[in-house]
Design a protein around this nucleic acid. Structure first.
Length: 463
RNA sequence: GGCCCCAUCGUCUAGCGGUUAGGAUCCAUGGUUUUCAUCCAUGUUACAGGAGUUCAAUUCUCCUUGGGGUCACCA
């Protein structure tokens, strides 16, 4: 069974890049009928917070990504790590290093001055004497000093590292006894049965270290997929400084989960020419072998397009619910179907949809000067008044077509073009030159409100 | 700097030795529309450079250049 994982450290909100690897992991597990588990890497007490964990969970919930089973917290697994540290010590695969920080810094400086690569020199690797006083030792693992470490990567292919180039006896437990990242990651992944690791390729150079741990402990090495980074417009790794990297910000901006997910799945991954993927399609079609090798630049133009697409295809009753977050309450509006049908084609975000709705529902308090100049010329007021008279005489009106017929009769009787009534009427009703179809607008407003707005407009602009 | 990764339209990408290098987005133009938007149609724009291998390279190899990542008692 395929078991994948997402293992964030709770230092802040869920990042758009993290979400993408989480999505890939989730999809790959689901496609294989496997499991997708969540592990919180909260070993750095200083930087972690519960709020961050909650934020990640909140984002997952919004997007409909659900982790299988219990959430694992590294902070609760100290005993396990301690056990393996002891095991490695007992087996002679790890050792205590009494080098002080000052000594280590000095060593690094010399190496840098000599333009050598900075690495621990292994001075305590086979130390048998009496340890120096007053130094709490760290524990280092005995890493291979020569030979190759090959990462069989599902995205990059086989990546070969020379042990002498990149490895030294790295620290697996700090002076205070707490284990370090590369050590616990390998243990947790192994113990949790993770056999397919999909993560950012910034971890690729960590992987040899983790392989050292796997091998020292006799664990089976998982399949790795290192997915390329998402870059900002400057071509650098996307970071918090680039703005709008918090997943929940997208909710606030009025993006739909399915749009964001669809956008993200297509960043660095593709399936032929297909652009639109439902969650079910993603689950059926996703395969990490189709992940690109190169980084992609974060650019939201396509996200807007996708979001517009999904808004158009969202049922009105669902939109009514979603608009509640944007202070638009249409729940009991009798013309909400007409309203949303007319507006959802023109909104790129829910926020825009809310604004558009507000512009229709609210009686205009002012009129765009340019629109007034353009629309209220010639006999425009006469046209509007003729229209108002006919509208007033009409029986109960409901459908857009019924309003359209009245417009038509005015146009015919006065022998004018449709623009002669359309433009002034639009400005009268909406206060500006653009907007949804007038038939629909009037049907939404109803006869009384329509008449009121026409009257207001004439009063305000006929001088 | 050492090590590692990467390189097709502005952007997201298809391509897996022989294609007029395809799609999407963006942009422009036209059509539809009483307006705007939607929608439809059309158009502009790409294989980083240089050597090989081959009858044939965007595709395979090497080099150069460019970009990125990573080098902690952080994760």
């Amino acid at each position: 069974m395929v078991i994948t994982r997402f293992a964030p450290s709770p230092t802040g909100y869920l990042h758009i890049g993290g979400l993408r690897t989480a999505l890939f992991s989730y999809l790959w597990a689901k496609k294989n009928g496997g499991k997708f588990v969540l592990r919180i890497e909260d070993t750095d007490k200083a930087r972690n917070s519960d709020e961050a964990t909650q934020a990640i969970l909140e984002a997952f919930a919004w997007l409909g990504l659900e982790a299988d089973g219990e959430i694992t917290y590294q902070s609760k697994r100290s005993d396990i790590y301690a056990k393996y540290i002891k095991q490695l010590l007992d087996e002679g695969k790890a050792y205590k290093c009494y080098m002080s920080r000052e000594e280590l810094d000095a060593l690094r400086e010399t190496q840098m001055a000599n333009k050598e690569r900075t690495k621990y020199d292994g001075r305590y690797r086979d130390f048998e004497g009496t340890p120096p006083e007053g130094v709490e030792p760290v524990i280092r693992i005995k890493a291979p000093i020569s030979g190759e470490i090959i990462v069989h990567d599902g995205v990059k292919g086989d990546v070969v590292f020379q042990a002498e180039d990149i490895l030294d006896d790295f620290v697996i437990a700090r002076a205070d006894g707490s284990p370090t990242y590369n050590f616990v990651v390998a243990i947790d992944d192994a113990l949790m049965g993770i056999n397919e690791v999909i993560r950012g390729d910034d971890h690729l150079s960590n992987t040899p270290k983790q392989i050292v741990v796997y091998e020292a402990l006799g664990f089976e090495i998982p399949k790795f997929y290192h997915v390329p980074m998402i870059h900002n417009q400057q071509g650098k790794k996307l970071s918090k400084r680039d703005g709008a990297t918090d997943v929940m910000e997208y909710k606030a901006m009025g993006y739909l989960p399915e749009a964001l997910l669809n956008f993200l799945v297509r960043l660095g991954w593709s399936h032929g020419d297909q652009e639109i993927f439902s969650m079910d399609e993603m689950k059926a079609l996703f395969d990490p072998k189709d992940i690109n090798k190169s980084a992609s630049i974060y650019n939201t133009e396509k996200l807007d397009w996708l979001n517009a697409h999904y808004i158009k295809n969202t049922p009105n009753d669902a939109l009514v619910e979603l608009l509640l977050d944007f202070d638009i309450v249409l729940t009991s509006h009798d013309k909400k179907e007409i309203l949303l049908d007319a507006l959802k084609e023109r909104a790129k975000t829910l926020k825009e949809l809310a604004t558009l709705s507000r512009e229709v529902i609210t009686t205009p308090s002012e009129y765009d000067a340019k629109a007034v100049k353009k629309a209220f010329k010639g006999n425009a007021f006469e046209v509007l008044e003729n229209f108002a008279v006919k509208l007033n005489e009409a029986d109960a009106l409901h459908l857009p077509e019924e309003y359209h017929h009245i417009m038509e009769s005015v146009v015919n009787e006065m022998e004018i073009g449709f623009g002669k009534i359309g433009n002034p009427l639009r400005v009268a009703l909406l206060g500006k030159m653009s907007g949804p179809g007038l038939d629909a607008v009037m049907a939404i407003l109803g006869k009384e409100e329509t008449l009121l707005r026409i009257e207001n407009a004439i009063k305000a602009n006929a001088s």
